[in-house]
Amino acid sequence: MSNLSPAEIQAIMRRGVPLAAEWEIEVLAAEAGTALVRLPAKPLLLRPGNTVSGPALMGLADVAMWAALLSTTEGRDDSVTSTMTVNFLRPAGSGPVLAEARLVKQGRRQVFGEILIRAEGSAELATHVTTTWTVIAPAR
Rank of each mutant, 00 (worst) to 15 (best):
L4I: 07
P6A: 11
E8F: 03
I9Y: 02
Q10S: 08
R14E: 05
R14Q: 15
R15K: 05
V17M: 11
V17H: 01
L19Q: 15
A20V: 15
A21W: 12
E24G: 01
I25K: 01
E26W: 02
V27Q: 03
L28K: 06
A30R: 01
G33F: 14
G33S: 14
A35H: 10
L44K: 08
R47M: 12
N50Q: 11
N50E: 05
T51D: 09
T51W: 03
T51M: 06
T51R: 11
V52E: 01
S53G: 14
P55R: 05
A56Y: 00
L57P: 11
A61L: 14
A64D: 09
A64W: 06
L69W: 06
L70K: 04
L70F: 10
S71T: 14
T73P: 14
E74R: 00
G75C: 08
D77Y: 00
S79C: 03
S79V: 02
V80W: 10
T81W: 08
T81A: 13
S82H: 12
T83Y: 09
M84G: 11
M84C: 12
T85A: 15
T85D: 09
V86L: 06
V86D: 01
R90V: 07
P91D: 09
P91K: 13
A92Y: 03
S94Q: 01
G95Y: 02
G95V: 04
P96N: 00
P96K: 00
P96T: 00
A99Y: 01
A99I: 00
E100M: 01
A101S: 03
R102A: 11
L103N: 04
L103G: 07
K105Q: 09
K105A: 14
Q106E: 02
G107Q: 02
Q110A: 08
Q110P: 00
F112G: 01
I115V: 15
I115D: 06
L116Y: 02
I117V: 14
R118D: 03
R118W: 05
S122A: 09
S122R: 09
S122G: 11
A123Y: 02
L125D: 05
A126R: 04
A126K: 07
T130R: 04
T130S: 07
T131Y: 07
T132W: 10
T134N: 05
V135K: 07
V135P: 10
A139Q: 15
A139V: 12
R140G: 13
